[in-house]
Amino acid sequence: MSENTKSVCEEKVYEQLYRDHAEKIYFYLYYKFGDSEKARDIVQDSFAKLWINCSKIVIKAAKSFLYKVANNSSINELRQQKSFLKYQNTNQKTITNESPEYQMEEKEFMERLNIAIGNLKSRQREVFLMSRMEKKTYKEIAEISGITVKAVEKRMQLALLNLRKSIPNL
Rank of each mutant, 00 (worst) to 15 (best):
P100D: 12
K82V: 15
E106L: 14
L161K: 09
Y18W: 15
A39I: 05
N119L: 00
L78W: 10
Y87C: 06
T96I: 11
V58Q: 03
S131P: 00
W51R: 05
E101R: 13
D35M: 08
K135A: 11
R40Y: 06
I144A: 02
A142P: 01
N71W: 00
N4D: 15
R164E: 05
K93R: 10
G118C: 12
K32Y: 11
E126N: 08
K24V: 06
Y87G: 09
E134V: 01
E10G: 15
Y28R: 06
Y31K: 06
L85I: 15
R112C: 08
G118P: 09
K135M: 04
K68P: 01
E11D: 10
Y30K: 08
C54M: 05
K165S: 12
A151V: 04
K86L: 13
Q16T: 15
C9F: 13
T94N: 04
P168D: 09
K63Y: 09
R40I: 04
K24P: 03
Y28H: 12
S131C: 07
K24M: 09
F84D: 11
I141R: 01
F84S: 11
D41G: 03
E126Q: 05
S122R: 10
F84C: 05
P168W: 03
L163Q: 07
L120E: 02
M1W: 14
Q92N: 14
Q80A: 10
E111L: 11
Q124N: 13
M156F: 08
N119W: 01
E153S: 11
E111F: 15
E106A: 12
N119I: 07
Y30P: 01
I75C: 11
L163P: 06
F27H: 09
E3D: 15
K86F: 09
S55G: 10
L129Y: 05
S145Y: 00
N53P: 10
K38Y: 03
E23C: 03
K82F: 05
G146K: 02
D41Q: 07
L120K: 06
Q92T: 14
L113D: 02
M1D: 12
I75F: 00
S55T: 11
I95F: 12
I42L: 02
V13N: 13
E37V: 07
H21K: 04
D20F: 01
V149L: 03
K139I: 09
K24A: 04
K6C: 07
L66K: 04
Y28W: 10
F128A: 05
L29I: 08
K60H: 12
W51D: 00
R132K: 10
F27T: 01
N71Q: 05
N97W: 14
M130W: 03
R19A: 15
N91A: 14
Y30D: 04
H21L: 13
F27K: 10
F109D: 04
K86D: 02
E126M: 08
I52Q: 04
K12C: 07
M133P: 00
